[in-house]
Design a protein around this nucleic acid. Sequence first.
DNA 1: CGCGGTGTTGAAAATTGTCAATAATTGTGG
DNA 2: CCACAATTATTGACAATTTTCAACACCGCG
Lengths: 266, 266
Amino acid sequence: MRTPAARTIAVEALPVKPRADQMLPGTEGHAIKVACSNCNLRELCLPVALTPAEMLKVDAVVAGRRKVKRGSALFRSGEPFTSLFAIRTGFFKSTLHSADGRDQVTGFQMAGEILGLDGIVSDHHTCDAIALEDAEVCVMPFDRIGELSRDIGALQDHVHRIMSREIVREHGVMLLLGSMRAEERLAAFLLNLVQRLHARGFSRSELVLRMTREEIGSYLGLKLETVSRTFSKFAEDGLIEVRQRQLRILDQEALRSVLKQQPGCA
Amino acid sequence: MRTPAARTIAVEALPVKPRADQMLPGTEGHAIKVACSNCNLRELCLPVALTPAEMLKVDAVVAGRRKVKRGSALFRSGEPFTSLFAIRTGFFKSTLHSADGRDQVTGFQMAGEILGLDGIVSDHHTCDAIALEDAEVCVMPFDRIGELSRDIGALQDHVHRIMSREIVREHGVMLLLGSMRAEERLAAFLLNLVQRLHARGFSRSELVLRMTREEIGSYLGLKLETVSRTFSKFAEDGLIEVRQRQLRILDQEALRSVLKQQPGCA
DNA sequence: CGCGGTGTTGAAAATTGTCAATAATTGTGG
DNA sequence: CCACAATTATTGACAATTTTCAACACCGCG
């Protein structure tokens, strides 16, 4: 039996601070100009101090934009690597396919985040980047980035930081996969997601899951049924309200505390 | 001309002796000559083509060496980040400590590998690097690396590749943690370890585990008892021979096939 | 208005973890 | 050099968690 917790939830997680081109689906706006200097994602994507002259050069790094339809790939494993991609709008998953037929979602990426870092080492992409909703990215040829960061120290720093940040993020995922139980994993996932959305101007309590239960499960190292059950348990306990992909966090504190029941509990 | 260092090493190192002999030949208590140009780990650590003039500059990146005793830390989470470290001798683990008291080994590092990349993003280290045997590292102040890679394109590339390689490595760990069962995890771990040791001139079938069962378990997301049991099972099945930390792979093919029993097994 | 993909739920099975006892090994100090 | 303490490893019995299999509900879309 379904608990009566299935009340209607606000249709869409609306931005707290309206930012037209961060709207999730249905974003129709045609890009006016390909330039970081007047991009409203700059604080996320390029949070460094640059002189106006440097800024102009950085603008030239962006070779153009590319739209990616929901369900299709920005790039796939094995393809030659030439560029990094900065997400302007939309939502991606990165998935790995192992030789022995395993699949693993290695991350979910949203506006302002960078895709393609895995391809640098071998000049080939090693995972797929799939749009989970219609998306648009800035294309940044990596050789241009290299050239320019020789001129502009702040840009060089920034590139290093982006890569290091990805390493640190993955450490966190390893911690999650290696030491948390299902409820903890899901709680950590939701808190992370809503925190990142909030940093982009969305609600800190409501969100729309752009991915399936199976994709969440793959990311968290769980089966889709376990994800579903855990959502239901959180809902029963009054931590969240969930109806399909509409999700509202009712008790963020309690969700946090799911993560803190750890050590010598015996 | 580049002498294939790995081959030279292989010849010298083949008689794999028990205890503390997983030290790279030729590195025993050498003088204080700090120079990449004549380092026998160069193929591993700095595999790029440089002119002699560039090579001299790169030598100057290494500010010095540092010895780390078994059990002590090269750096700890929270400490200011200033330098990357290249392992000359010894063996390290990297461990993460979460706010809620969880620990996670995020990797094991050996000669020729780089430590400290996680610290770049925030100017502070975010994990501990602990020596599992007496070790020596080259200290490479990161600002010098930055300066020099502005001059030397090949070095810039190399730095990018090192970071990207770490990202790709961690993807692999996520796959392991997210989708493999205990036997598969341990098999993958052993194969990876022996492959890296072999690349450094050691036997492809014998190795000495420098870490405890608990550390292996932490890395693989398993309890130490599960690690121990799985070792025993592999031994019963004739895949390996294990006596404490001495380990011999008897049937590498069979170990590999542990990873390939994936899909519709029912 | 039905269909396919997606999500939920139950029951049983499998895997891994927990607790506990014991053994082996290593390090330490007399 | 030996003995003792501490750490590390092995193994068994049992418990907990998660997966598997299966049935069914829901939703969006053509």
